[in-house]
Computed example of a mutant assay.
Amino acid sequence: MFIDPETLTPKEIYKLLIGSVVPRPIAWVSTVSRNGVYNLAPFSFYNVVSRNPPMLGISIGPGVGERNGTEKDTLTNIRSEKDFVINVVSNKVANQMHLSSSNFQPEVDEFKSVKVTPMESKIVKSPLIMEADIKMECRLEKIIELGSDHLVIGRLVQYHIIDDLYCDGKVNIGKLQPVGRLAGNYNLVENIFLLPR
């Protein structure tokens, strides 16, 4: 079967893409507004985009639902304050991450709404999520408009990891229990193996 993406609606091609590019890591992004309001949002269009210097990229689409077509608070805050934090989603914070995907109004402190604890960052203004085992402070490098979305690239300026996960310069993935995104569901990384079997 062959499918020409030009013959599909944006929603139809989106469904095929999110069902094919799996599992996707989740960037649980924390930002702060110009007025000091804390914001949280998960993004599964996310990855490392440079190793030297270390940079991470998240793709932020337009608002949906009652905020259809508007700019998301995360993007507004990053434009304004020039920084953000990527908190890694593990099994123990998966429910709070999912709750933070709701459409909150810009004046709502989402840390309070989903019951996680803000923690002061070492370098950037955006807060860390205390309950996340890995947190990455990023300074805005650039924002690239790509079709309907915005690719936000941040330079890693401070890395936080709990002692239990740090082993000889590496992350213990088994102990981390990272959560990934499938098409409309989630997966837990727990079946780790080497190839060839």
Results as ranks from 00 to 15, higher is better:
3 I>N: 08
7 T>E: 14
17 L>F: 14
18 I>R: 11
19 G>I: 10
25 P>F: 00
27 A>L: 05
31 T>V: 04
34 R>G: 12
36 G>M: 03
37 V>I: 15
41 A>P: 07
43 F>I: 07
44 S>W: 00
45 F>C: 09
45 F>I: 10
50 S>P: 09
51 R>E: 15
52 N>R: 14
53 P>E: 10
54 P>W: 05
56 L>E: 01
57 G>W: 02
58 I>P: 03
61 G>I: 06
64 V>L: 13
64 V>F: 13
65 G>C: 02
67 R>P: 02
69 G>W: 10
69 G>K: 09
71 E>A: 09
73 D>V: 08
73 D>Q: 09
73 D>G: 04
77 N>C: 04
77 N>H: 04
77 N>L: 08
80 S>A: 15
81 E>S: 05
82 K>P: 04
87 N>M: 01
87 N>Y: 00
88 V>C: 01
88 V>D: 01
91 N>M: 12
93 V>D: 01
94 A>G: 09
94 A>M: 14
97 M>D: 00
98 H>A: 14
100 S>E: 02
103 N>V: 13
104 F>M: 08
114 V>F: 00
114 V>A: 02
116 V>Q: 00
116 V>T: 03
117 T>E: 02
125 K>R: 12
125 K>G: 05
126 S>D: 02
126 S>M: 01
130 M>I: 10
133 D>G: 11
134 I>N: 03
136 M>C: 06
137 E>N: 05
139 R>V: 12
143 I>W: 03
144 I>E: 13
145 E>R: 12
148 S>V: 12
148 S>F: 11
149 D>N: 15
152 V>G: 03
152 V>W: 02
163 D>N: 13
163 D>E: 15
166 Y>N: 12
167 C>V: 15
168 D>S: 14
168 D>L: 13
171 V>L: 12
174 G>K: 12
176 L>W: 01
177 Q>G: 07
177 Q>A: 13
179 V>L: 08
180 G>I: 06
184 G>W: 11
184 G>Y: 14
185 N>G: 15
186 Y>T: 04
186 Y>P: 06
192 I>Y: 07
194 L>A: 13
